[in-house]
Structures are given as structure tokens and as C-alpha cells.
Design a protein around this nucleic acid. Sequence first.
DNA 1: ATAAACAAGACTATTTTGGTCCTATTTAAT
DNA 2: ATTAAATAGGACCAAAATAGTCTTGTTTAT
Lengths: 142, 142
Amino acid sequence: MFKLNKKTEYGLLALQYMSSLQDDQVTTAREIAEKNDISLALVSKILQKLAQKKLVRSVQGAKGGYVLAKNSTNISLAEIVQAIEGPIYIFDCQKNRCTRIQACSIKGQLNAVAYKMIDYFKTIKLSDFSTEISKNKQESFQ
Amino acid sequence: MFKLNKKTEYGLLALQYMSSLQDDQVTTAREIAEKNDISLALVSKILQKLAQKKLVRSVQGAKGGYVLAKNSTNISLAEIVQAIEGPIYIFDCQKNRCTRIQACSIKGQLNAVAYKMIDYFKTIKLSDFSTEISKNKQESFQ
DNA sequence: ATAAACAAGACTATTTTGGTCCTATTTAAT
DNA sequence: ATTAAATAGGACCAAAATAGTCTTGTTTAT
């Protein structure tokens, strides 16, 4: 269906929430879960992935929690998606061995498209999400 | 996982094959299936969707088949994806009612991203797929 | 009439995604 | 030392989306 998955959506909400806090204030998975109405278990899993990819820093033990590991101007949508969903493939034969006998006639162009998209995603930063609260166009795109 | 699905891939292969033929030469689903190593039943379904959206024209009866309904320079990737996968949603709360109590903090920016992507997809034409046979970079994108 | 094609819906299987649960580890506070 | 609050991570199950098949009907050239 060509969309970001729910986990990425939750990850964005979590990161957005963290970036809204005073600098370097540690928050817990529990708090993020409650404030954003996501199950604790699920958001925990997502935060773990973000921590593995060093987008957030985890503080272990009692009084522990999570903080953004970098400034929100330095966390890109590309990084977030890759941290949560894994490598970005736009089409299948990038990922799996292409079994087509003749040289695949569409691979080249699709690769170019994929590159462009990822480049664009790199330009979108977490900080960009804080600003645009107004434009809530909820419609689909024909 | 944020990728085009296999059906779209097959649809592209089918369209590409049709565009490689002499002008207005009708070809059958069977031929497309064989030449591209896709099951007949599956490629038939896909061709039907493309026909419904008038990207290809179907000729019924014996000696029937399919032809491109427009010049390949006038068929965009956006149209193809939408014909096969349905409306493009980049994130979930576009499609389903957003249940989050507070105004969703990420919707605005994600909508902007979605628009940009669809606009980009509109600029990619079927004819573009015929040219780039060389750049077969098969790697994933970290 | 017949055979070769498309049309379309119902159905099944497979894969991916979403989500839970359990156990272990870390650490501040008492 | 013990406890409680936190993260870490793997195993597991449920649900949804995708891929693929099958069957029946319609169209039309020969």
C-alpha cells in the first residue's frame, strides 16, 4: 500500500513528544505511552529500536528513561524510518533476488526513484514536525 | 515497509512490455504472462485494473487483448500505482479516523511529505522506464 | 457453434505488521 | 542487601494486507 507503517507513526509521535520537552529531560516509555495513547509494550519496542540506532539515548535503571540523542534538527525522517522499519526498499526485486530471466526492464528507473525519495526523506527533520500544526488536510489523494 | 507491492511491479512490467511493441499492436494477457514470467491469472487481474482506469484498452473476444490507451509519455507512475494499489496514503491516520485525542502532532508535516511524493510520481512516465537500462544498481539503501 | 480472449467475484494461502508477554538486567533509593 | 522502577530483548500470537488461484460468465472472430 506504499505507506509508513504504524510503528513509524508511533515512533514519530514519541520523538515529537521528547523534542517538546525541556532540553535533556529524561522521560519514560510509560509516560510517552500514556501521553500518546499507545500501548506501553509496543512503544517500548519502538524506543528500543530508536535507541539501537542512536536516535535516542536510554538511561537504564530506576529514574531511567529516554532522551533525544541529538538535536531535533539533526534527526531526519529517513533515519527514523530506517531505524524502525529497516532498510528502505521501494520495490521488491531490490530486496529479493530478481528471478526474471531477461534483464529486468524496470529496475534501473525504480532505483533512481528510490534514491530520490530517500534523499528527500533525509531533508525532512524531526524539528519540521513541530511547526506545521495548521495544515491538517485530512483528505486522501485521489 | 514503504514499498510498491508486487502487483505494481508486475503491472509495470506488463505496461513496459506493451510499450515496447509496435504502435497499437494488441497483445494478450497470456503473452504478457509468458514473456514476463508471471502467472496468467494474476497478470489478468492486474490488466483488468489497468483497463478500468483506462491506462490500457481491452479488446474483447477472440483475437482480443490489450493495448496502451495512451502514449507512454502520458502514463505516470502515480496513475499506475493508484490504478493497481488504490489511493496512495503515506500514513495510516490519513486513511482511518485518527483516534488520538489531542490534535495529531505529526499529521500536517506528513501530509506535506505525501503531497510532494505524489507530485514526484506524477512526473515519472512509463516512457522513462524504456531508457534507463544501464543503471542497474542492485544494492539496498543502507 | 466453437474457441480464444477478457471480466469479475469468491476464495485461499502466504507474508507482513501489529501487538503482547515473559524473563533478564540495570540502577537509584532505602 | 533489598526493593522497585526502569530498559533490553526474545518468543510468541493475532490481525491485516498482499499474493495468488479458481470458477463462472460474456464477448467476438472464425
